[in-house]
């Protein structure tokens, strides 16, 4: 199942919380302002296989469609 871009943005704490989002081949590497606003359960519900957070870097594992999902997210957050 492809993860839902809008739901991933919400799970990352919303558009204003996202500094940068970069796709690797199976994951979205994101930098956020406030990691406490990230909702790992919501990200899993949005289709993520898992979420790894270290400081303000949050990696959302979405499978090999990561680059497509990242461009969907970039289209939404502009």
């Amino acid at each position: 199942m492809a993860a839902d871009a809008g739901a991933i943005i919400a799970g990352l704490g919303g558009v204003d919380n996202i500094i940068e989002i970069e796709p690797c081949i199976t994951r979205l590497r994101t930098e956020v302002h406030d990691a406490s606003k990230v909702d790992a359960a919501a990200l899993r519900a949005a289709g993520a296989h898992g979420v790894m957070a270290a400081g303000n870097i949050v990696q959302v594992v979405v499978g090999p469609e990561a680059d497509t999902i990242a461009s969907d997210i970039e289209d939404i957050i502009g």
């Binding site: 199976t26 994951r27 990696q59 594992v61 499978g63």
Partner: peptide, 9 residues
Amino acid sequence: DPVFSAGMV
């Protein structure tokens, strides 16, 4: 790498 080592993908 925590994603690969956990078998997450």
